[in-house]
């Protein structure tokens, strides 16, 4: 059965592996070039413990290099799971039903139960391995640019490209595609459904992820910026001198800034702080990275297991 699985799905396996290799080469090239750029400025190594060694010029140069690659992989957290769902998951059963080959596959000696278990197991395993490899590559590449600045917790896009999140997302998309195939018994509609389903799940979980833990609260005075660029902000509000939260403090007159200037907004904030107001921020500190990773992975793995069970139920009930 493992040979059969390989033979039937080698196109997807090889394409995905090829894509990961290409991405790896791109990240390797980018990281190598960035390292030589930094060592051009600081041949004896970095004194400051930051990727940019405290130099503004280097920070700008690294930022440009980082952004160039980030524009490419910024959409990967959404697109890659969608592709996995569409090209690994949807055809798994959709194509068998569509071409009638399920009647060939399921009338051999191998029981349907085992056929499905091997397919879901082997391909699910491959998908998880691919997701982990992607995460590993991104985790090695990113610190070259962002070390000492952030760990990828604050930016939800980056968060979903590191740790166990990509593997969990890929697995979920694969399982969802498999189930969609049993619903339509055709590949194309199953692909459409799984892309829509993965997108919907992603926006739901992005919104939900703020509630994976009760957020911390910090009351700021004199500034509205939290002193940790890696924290994930949940909410913010003004607090009046009596400690009540106010959405729109009226104690100071607020002028309208024109163009890119924020002078009037800053003046308004200074005025409020002078009046005894404070700025309360709710946020998740970056130490929660793994807690959030495992929470998200747990939700997705549980959903994948449920989808696989539903798939098995439908397949075993309606084999013909």
């Amino acid at each position: 059965m493992i040979w059969v699985t390989w033979r039937q799905h080698r196109a997807q396996l090889l394409t995905t592996a090829g894509f990961l290799v290409l991405l790896g080469l791109l990240l390797l090239g980018s990281a190598t070039e960035a390292r030589s750029y930094v060592s051009g400025y600081f041949p004896d190594g970095c004194p400051a413990g930051f990727a940019h060694c405290g130099s503004v010029e280097v920070a700008v140069g690294l930022g440009e290099r980082y952004d160039a690659v980030y524009t490419l992989f910024g959409w990967m957290p959404l697109v890659l799971p969608a592709l996995i769902g569409a090209f690994w998951g949807a055809p798994l059963l959709g194509r068998e039903y569509e071409r009638g080959t399920h009647r060939l596959a399921w009338t051999q000696s191998v029981p349907v139960r085992r056929w499905l278990a091997v397919k879901l197991g082997v391909l699910g395993g491959a998908v998880v391995a691919g997701g982990l490899l992607l995460s590993l590559m991104v985790s090695l590449w990113r610190p070259v640019f962002r070390e000492g600045i952030d760990s990828g917790f604050g930016n939800i896009g980056v968060f979903n490209m590191t740790g166990v999140a990509p593997a969990a997302w890929w697995l979920y998309a694969f399982a969802a595609g498999g189930f969609a195939g049993t619903l339509f018994r055709r590949t194309l509609p199953a692909m459409a459904l799984v892309v829509a389903g993965v997108a919907a799940t992603m926006f739901t979980l992005f919104a939900l992820s703020d509630h994976y833990a009760p957020p911390d609260r910090a009351v700021l005075s004199g500034t509205v910026v939290l002193d940790d660029p890696d924290a994930r902000l949940v909410g913010a509000t003004w607090v009046d001198p009596s400690g009540r939260a106010v959405d729109d403090p009226a104690a100071c007159e607020r002028g309208l800034d024109t163009g890119r200037s924020s002078a009037k907004a800053e003046a308004w904030q200074d005025c409020l702080f002078a009046e005894g107001y404070a700025y309360a921020v709710t946020y998740h500190p970056p130490e929660r990275f793994w807690r959030f990773q495992w929470t998200e992975a747990g939700i997705l793995v549980a959903a994948s297991a449920l989808l696989c069970a539903l798939t098995a139920r439908r397949v075993l009930r309606r084999r013909g």
């Binding site: 059965m1 040979w3 059969v4 033979r7 039937q8 071409r99 009638g100 080959t101 009647r103 060939l104 596959a105 051999q108 000696s109 191998v110 056929w115």
Partner: peptide, 18 residues
């Protein structure tokens, strides 16, 4: 129904393995 991308030899291999 046959797996159209399989060669005839591979279909025999499919049968042998299943």
């Amino acid at each position: 129904p046959l797996y159209e991308s399989f060669t005839v030899g591979e279909l025999l291999e499919f049968g042998r393995r299943t």
